[in-house]
Amino acid sequence: MALRSLDNALPLPTTSERPKKQAKVTIPTQKQSADENTVPLPETETAAATDASIDYISSENLNSLTDPDIKIQTLIDELESKDWLKVCDSLNDVRRFALFHSNLLLPILGRIMLILVKTLKNPRSALCKTSIMTSSDIFTSFNQVLLNDPTISDSFDALLLQLLLKASQDKKFVCEEADKTLNIAVKSMSPLPLLHKLRTYVTHSNMRIRAKVAVTISNCISKMGVEEMKEFGLQPMIKLAAVLLNDRLPAAREAARSIVMSVYGSFTAGKEEKDEEEEEEKEESSWQVFCQSNLTAIDAQSMIKIVSLSKQ
C-alpha cells in the first residue's frame, strides 16, 4: 500500500514551550475628595478625630435647664436618636436633670438606665464615656433609690454589670471613668445593700470582671461598721473572700486579702482588753477555729496565714 506524501503536512513547532500569558495589572481607582490636595483620612482615623472633638463636661460645670418641664417630654425620643452626637447631647441633658431636676427624671429613671446600658455597649468611645459620666451623676443624685425601688432595681443591676465590664476593658480613658463611677457608687450608697448586689458577680465567667468586683467589694466592706458586717454575716463574707483568694488575677487576690483583714477586725472587735499576749493568743485561737469551721482546710490555712503575716 502506497504511503501518502507528507509534503503538505503542517510543520511541527520547533519547541514544546507554551506561550506565556500576560499578567493582568489592576490599577486601583481612588475616590477623590472635595479638595484634591487633601489626603483623605482612613475611616477609623476620621471616627477617632470625631470622638476627640466631643467636649466632656464635668459635673461641676453643668447648669440647670431653662425649660425642664418641656424638655422632659422629648428626652426619651432624643436619647433613642440614630445620630450619636445628638445622643451625647441628650445624655448631658440627663445629667442636668439628675443634678438639678431629679423629681422630673425619677418617673422615667428605669427607662433611662436601660438606654444607658445600650449606649454603654456602643463601640464609639465618646458615647461610651458620656454614658459612664451620666451614670455617675445618677448614682450621686439617686443613690438609695436605685437600691430600694423595686421598679428600678433590675435596671440598676444591668447598668452595674455594664460598668464593671467597661472598667475591665483596655481603653484607658473609658476604663478610668468606669472605675471612678464605681467608686462614686460605693461612696454614695449604703454598703450593705450594694454588697448584696455585687456578690452575684463574684463567680462571673469573665475573670477581669471578677477582679473589678473584688476591688469594689473590698472598698464597700471597708466602709461598713461592725454591726453592718455582722448583719451581712461574717461566715458568708469569709467564704466570699476564699473564692476570690483563689482567683487567677492578682487584683482579685489582693482585694480578697483586704476583705480577710476586715472580717478579722470585725471578728475580734469589742473584746475586753486584758494581758496583750494572752489576748492575742486567744484571738488567734478563736480565729483559727472560726476559719476551720467555715472553710476547707486549705482555705482556712490561707486565712490564718494572711492574718499572721499582717502582724509581723
Rank of each mutant, 00 (worst) to 15 (best):
residue 185 A to F: 09
residue 168 S to F: 07
residue 165 L to Y: 07
residue 186 V to T: 00
residue 181 T to F: 00
residue 179 D to H: 09
residue 173 F to M: 13
residue 171 K to E: 13
residue 163 L to K: 04
residue 180 K to A: 15
residue 177 E to I: 05
residue 181 T to H: 01
residue 184 I to C: 03
residue 186 V to Q: 01
residue 178 A to P: 04
residue 176 E to N: 14
residue 187 K to W: 07
residue 176 E to M: 10
residue 171 K to F: 14
residue 167 A to Q: 13
residue 178 A to F: 09
residue 177 E to R: 14
residue 184 I to N: 04
residue 164 L to I: 03
residue 164 L to V: 02
residue 176 E to V: 13
residue 169 Q to K: 08
residue 182 L to K: 02
residue 172 K to G: 15
residue 168 S to R: 07
residue 180 K to P: 04
residue 185 A to Q: 11
residue 180 K to W: 12
residue 168 S to V: 07
residue 175 C to S: 12
residue 156 F to I: 02
residue 168 S to K: 07
residue 162 Q to V: 08
residue 188 S to E: 14
residue 162 Q to I: 13
residue 173 F to S: 10
residue 178 A to S: 08
residue 169 Q to V: 05
residue 163 L to I: 12
residue 166 K to I: 04
residue 187 K to S: 03
residue 180 K to C: 06
residue 190 S to K: 05
residue 179 D to S: 07
residue 170 D to Y: 13
residue 186 V to N: 00
residue 172 K to Y: 05
residue 156 F to M: 01
residue 159 L to V: 01
residue 159 L to K: 00
residue 170 D to K: 04
residue 165 L to Q: 12
residue 167 A to Y: 06
residue 157 D to A: 15
residue 160 L to D: 09
residue 189 M to S: 15
residue 160 L to G: 02
residue 175 C to R: 05
residue 173 F to W: 15
residue 183 N to R: 05
residue 158 A to Q: 12
residue 184 I to V: 06
residue 182 L to G: 01
residue 167 A to M: 12
residue 180 K to G: 13
residue 158 A to D: 10
residue 176 E to A: 15
residue 159 L to W: 02
residue 161 L to T: 12
residue 170 D to V: 02
residue 189 M to G: 07
residue 166 K to F: 10
residue 188 S to P: 02
residue 157 D to R: 11
residue 168 S to Q: 11
residue 159 L to M: 13
residue 160 L to P: 01
residue 164 L to W: 08
residue 176 E to S: 06
residue 156 F to P: 00
residue 163 L to D: 13
residue 187 K to P: 05
residue 181 T to D: 00
residue 176 E to I: 08
residue 170 D to P: 00
residue 166 K to T: 10
residue 158 A to W: 09
residue 180 K to T: 14
residue 178 A to E: 12
residue 172 K to F: 11
residue 182 L to P: 00
residue 171 K to D: 07
residue 184 I to G: 02
residue 164 L to C: 00
residue 172 K to A: 08
residue 170 D to G: 08
residue 170 D to W: 02
residue 157 D to F: 15
residue 159 L to D: 01
residue 171 K to N: 12
residue 162 Q to M: 13
residue 184 I to W: 06
residue 188 S to L: 09
residue 187 K to G: 03
residue 185 A to N: 13
residue 163 L to C: 10
residue 185 A to H: 11
residue 162 Q to Y: 09
residue 179 D to P: 01
residue 186 V to I: 02
residue 165 L to F: 15
residue 189 M to A: 04
residue 171 K to M: 14
residue 167 A to G: 12
residue 188 S to I: 03
residue 174 V to F: 01
residue 181 T to Q: 01
residue 169 Q to T: 10
residue 158 A to F: 11
residue 173 F to T: 14
residue 160 L to A: 10
residue 177 E to H: 05
residue 174 V to A: 06
residue 175 C to T: 10
residue 186 V to D: 00
residue 190 S to G: 09
residue 187 K to C: 06
residue 189 M to F: 04
residue 169 Q to G: 10
residue 173 F to E: 08
residue 190 S to F: 08
residue 166 K to N: 05
residue 163 L to Y: 13
residue 172 K to N: 13
residue 188 S to R: 12
residue 169 Q to D: 13
